[in-house]
Structure formats: structure tokens, C-alpha cells
Design a protein around this nucleic acid. Sequence first.
DNA 1: GGAATCTGGTTGCCACGGCAACCACATTCG
DNA 2: CGAATGTGGTTGCCGTGGCAACCAGATTCC
Lengths: 149, 149
Amino acid sequence: MRWLDATQMRAWRGFLDLHARLAAKLNRDLQRTSGLTLSDYDVLVHLTDVPEGRLRAFELGDGLQWDKSRVSKQVARLAARGLVAKEECEADRRGAYVVLTPAGREAIEAAAPAHVELVHRLVFDTITPEQVREWAAISRAILQRIEAG
Amino acid sequence: MRWLDATQMRAWRGFLDLHARLAAKLNRDLQRTSGLTLSDYDVLVHLTDVPEGRLRAFELGDGLQWDKSRVSKQVARLAARGLVAKEECEADRRGAYVVLTPAGREAIEAAAPAHVELVHRLVFDTITPEQVREWAAISRAILQRIEAG
DNA sequence: GGAATCTGGTTGCCACGGCAACCACATTCG
DNA sequence: CGAATGTGGTTGCCGTGGCAACCAGATTCC
């Protein structure tokens, strides 16, 4: 049977630890400074990335790789806070559009700079441009492997 | 203000996506084949790593970087399933030991090989040894940066 | 020695995510 | 057309994690 050697173990534990620490820190910071969670943030970013700030719910789910129930509930929460609105779809009466509201746009534009700056400080100020490329290549390779099955 | 350039964006999104995909897949697989969650697994691994399979609850929390309430609840759940036992501490009467039971040791030893094999297949069969080293170095650097504040 | 403080651990509350069941509409196919 | 199947989305249930409040036992400091 194959175990992990010391270097692999360091890499694997490092990866898991790094994510746990970063996610915790970024989430706390985001929440504290803007009242948004990382999930809120991700939804709003996806909406700002698209013309009119309008997406079908399932498109949001595909983009975020989220379970559809997660999309549904997250959108419901954001809608309750007025950051997005739900609109019906005429072409497919089952469907729903999720639309960024002015308040939502304001929220994400207020939150993004400090968030991105923190990512810079913690991550990209710490590693070299060459490491950034290598990091991206590694993630990309493994992701493709996962897609393949 | 500093934004993320294209490479940084690829690295960052890749990191987040990779973790989400891997964690989902590994968790599902682990749960299906052994009835353990990743959290269960992590606790049991930490206990097997130590002589007598016995740790103070706070040591477990330090090792896993978990909130103490998380430790408390996770241990309670594992104890209810007979995989660990809680023992009082005589030296500090507030304290509690968490001890791996024979059933717990059996469970982790049954679960580990398939889990590690899956990590191998998805991750380490996909990237070169040089990339493994670089990956570990990157995670390590950023983690140290986070510790520093 | 005793009050203030600290520390280890538990509990309650709430938000969140996964899963399966379900509903409504759409599409396919005989 | 109409039945079967597929798809978009919602809901309920349950396990889980974070946070704050809390409790009991330890420690500090006068």
C-alpha cells in the first residue's frame, strides 16, 4: 500500500491548513468590515461579472459549483437583505433570474477593495511571481484530473 | 488600489476551487466507504499519532486549529459512537482526556488506506515531485505570514 | 487567605451546507 | 396528443461550525 512520504505529507497538510487559516481569516475580516460572508461575496462577484448583473439561478450554481439547494437558500438570504432580487423568467416559467440590486452593488464595491488588499498582503506579497504561476499550474493540473474522474 | 492580475486571479481561484472540489470528493468518498467524515478522520489521526492515543482536549484543539467548542462537540459525537472515550484528568480537575478506543483505532485503520490512495490518485499522481516541493514551500510561506499577523 | 483573573471545557443559539423529496414546468417520444 | 422523462428551483431534515455566555477549577497578586 502507498503511504505519503514526508514531502507529500508536508504539501498535503500545508494545503489543508493553509485553506483553513485563510478562509477563517478572510471570512472574519470580511464579516467584520462589511457584513458579508465569503459566500455572499462570491455570489455578488459572480453577478457583477456579468452584464446587467443578472443570471439564471442555475448559471450561478454552475459558476460557483454549488448544489442547487445551496444556491436557492443563499439567494433567498441575500434577497431578504435586499442585496439581490429574484425575477421570474418568461422564456422558462420554472426559471428564476437573480439580479444584483443597487444596494448589492454598493455592498460589493464597498467590500471588495479591503478584501482584495488582504489577499494581497497575506498571499501575493509573500510568494514570488514565479511561485504564483507554479501554484496556478498545480491547482489547474489537479482540477483537470478531478474533472476527468 | 491593487487588484489581482490575471495570473494571480488564476492562482487564487484555482486554490479555492481545488480545495472545494477535493474536500467535497474526499468527504463523500470517506463517508461512503467508512462512515467517517473528514473531521472524524482528522481527530482520529491526531490521536493515533500520539503514544497511548490519548490527548487533552485542548491539545487536540491546538493541533487541529479548532475552536474549543468544535472540539467539544466533535469529541462528544465520536464518544457517542464509541470511537473515542473521555476520561477525567486528575492533575487538573477541569480537564478532559480524549482517548482512542479499540473501535476507533479499528475504524481509522480501516478507513486510512483507501483515503490515502485516493489522495495519491487525485493529487500526487498528477504533479511532479518538484511541484510537490514547490507546493509545500508556497503553503508554508503563506502560513508563516499568517502566523506573523 | 481571598478577591480578581485566567483557563479548560460545555452549552445554546444561529447560520450554513448536503441530501433527498418534492413541485412545476418543459421536452421527448411513441 | 399524451405519457414518460428531464430540468429548474424550493423545502425539510439533519449534521455541523462559529460565537458568546457560562461554569468550574486553577492561578495570581495583594
